[in-house]
Computed example of a mutant assay.
Amino acid sequence: MVDVMGHVAMALLWTLPAWFVWHDRVSAVFVAIAAVVAPMPDVDKYLAMAFPDAVHHHGVTHTVIFAVAAALVAGGLAAWLLTDRVDGWVHGDRFDASSMFVFAAGAVLVGWLSHIFADMLSAPDISTAIEPLWPFIDGSWGIDLIWYNNPLWNVVFLAVMLLAHGVLAYSAFKVDHPYRIEKA
């Protein structure tokens, strides 16, 4: 699942619950952030070309600690830069700075962790080992469940996730959702 389609599809899978938590636009933004972030851990491929002695693929950007750090930075930036704009844009949900921080950090964390998980399902066959719990636990974690870059799997998985999100988005935008948590 290592190609971009597979990573986006995994992020879409992980964000399906967003449609049951927030109102229409807010759910869509959460899903979009996670989907955009999902391919980002692979920036280490390009960093490895520039710094071959210091960086390798499936290295530090593919760890839970890096995912948390990226989420905290993104959440802080979103709270600082976007709180006032977003609060006026959403209907029914109130976004103060702390809500914006948690929302943005959560979306980035979900997108980043979904990438790591997807690599854990497919990395062992021809790629470098993935050590998601480094520096706390040393060693590779992964199962060779899916071939590294199976185009059929990636396309079908992405299509199914897009269809699922389309149905949930239609439901969220067109009808009162039976599981939506209403804010007082």
Rank of each mutant, 00 (worst) to 15 (best):
V4H: 07
M5I: 01
H7A: 03
M10A: 13
M10Y: 01
M10F: 05
L13T: 08
L13P: 04
L16T: 01
A18M: 02
W19D: 09
V21P: 05
V21S: 05
V21T: 10
D24R: 12
A28R: 03
F30G: 04
A32E: 14
I33P: 00
I33Q: 06
V37N: 09
V37P: 02
P41A: 06
D42M: 15
V43W: 11
K45A: 08
L47F: 15
A48I: 13
M49T: 05
A50I: 13
V55T: 06
H62D: 07
I65V: 13
I65Y: 11
I65M: 04
F66G: 07
F66R: 15
A70R: 01
A71N: 06
L72P: 05
V73K: 12
A74S: 15
G75Q: 10
L77Q: 09
D84V: 05
R85K: 11
V86T: 11
G88A: 14
R94M: 00
R94W: 14
F95W: 12
S99T: 02
M100W: 08
A104D: 05
A107N: 04
G111S: 10
I116W: 03
D125F: 01
I126F: 06
T128G: 13
A129C: 15
A129K: 10
I130P: 07
E131H: 13
L133F: 13
L133K: 08
L133E: 06
F136T: 11
F136D: 10
D138T: 12
G139H: 02
G142W: 02
I143D: 03
D144T: 13
L145E: 15
I146R: 12
I146C: 11
Y148F: 12
N149S: 11
P151V: 03
V155D: 04
V156K: 09
L158G: 00
H165N: 08
H165S: 02
H165V: 00
G166H: 01
A169F: 04
Y170N: 06
A172F: 07
K174D: 15
V175D: 14
V175Y: 14
D176S: 14
P178Q: 09
E182S: 10
E182K: 12
